[in-house]
């Protein structure tokens, strides 16, 4: 196995007195696809938000591509521009067109020219199958389209790692598939992905590993086949029975 691109050791985090992440140890290899699931409040979103330091951990170490994330970090921006993130609520910039959403960071962070940035943006909009919406504004698009723009916006920075924080949870059922299809393609192209989701079908299809979290701990992790057919822990069994029963 090559050197892991993400290495988390004995990491702990508190919100005030609430112990939200407990002794997390996790290594992710380049190209690996990880699905993180668990009941709400289990700390899974907080975990991936620690990976680009939207949240700060208090104990232990997190290394992303060999750089340790801690308070002394000078160029957090350069780490962040290599780690793309997609949010549950899309978080597109409503005052900018789709194209401007996608070119903002390449122009101002990567110092690309407008022409280069737009060419790149159109290429990724093509890839998420909405090339014809480039000049519209986020408010004119459906939820599914907005989330695909958000994915294209993150991809425009050519990230090595993509983080997905419940990307389909805010979508109407008929739009979930169009977003998942884009994510499956991205996985097939070899992107390193960490994905917090309740879409178990997606997990079965693309995940190399499924991680189950509860009460701030990684309770169980396994390959999807074994994870779903033969869960070891009682809490995992109960969670799966609730998610898969309907």
């Amino acid at each position: 196995m090559t050197d892991p691109v993400i290495r988390i050791s004995d990491m702990n985090k508190w919100f005030g007195t609430f112990h939200v992440l407990r002794d997390i140890n996790l290594q992710v290899a380049a190209g690996e696809k990880i699905v993180i699931c668990g009941p709400s409040g289990s700390g899974k979103s907080t975990l991936i938000r620690c990976l680009n330091r939207l949240e700060q951990h208090q104990e232990g170490t997190i290394e992303v591509e060999g750089v340790s994330l801690d308070g002394s970090l000078k160029n957090l921006e350069s780490i962040r521009s290599n780690v793309g993130m997609v949010f549950q609520q899309f978080n597109l910039f409503p005052h900018m067109s789709v194209l401007e959403n996608c070119t903002l960071a390449p122009i101002w962070v990567k110092q690309k020219t407008k022409q280069e940035a737009e060419a790149l943006a159109r290429q990724f909009l093509e890839r998420v199958r909405i090339p014809d919406q480039a000049d519209k504004y986020p408010g004119q698009l459906s939820g599914g389209q907005q989330q695909r723009v958000a994915i294209a916006r993150a991809l425009c920075m050519n990230p090595d790692i993509m983080l997905f924080d419940e990307p389909t949870s805010a979508l109407d059922p008929e739009m979930i598939k169009e977003v998942l299809d884009v994510m499956v393609e991205l996985a097939e192209d070899g992107m390193t992905m960490l994905c917090v989701t309740h879409e178990m079908g997606f997990a079965r299809q693309v995940a190399d590993r499924v991680i189950f979290m509860d009460e701030g701990e990684i309770v169980e992790e396994n390959e999807p086949e074994a994870f779903f057919s033969n869960p070891q822990n009682e809490r995992t069994k109960m969670f799966l029975s609730q998610v898969l029963s309907h």
């Binding site: 921006e77 962040r80 780690v83 949010f87 910039f93 005052h95 962070v109």
Partner: peptide
């Protein structure tokens, strides 16, 4: 929305640029 700053930060925009290009216009 707090998410606007988070999205800017996640894209690697420094805070001053996020304020100028994303937060203040809104």
């Amino acid at each position: 929305n707090k998410g606007q700053r988070e999205a800017s930060a996640a894209l690697g925009l420094p805070e001053s640029l996020a304020l100028r290009l994303v937060v203040i216009p809104q």
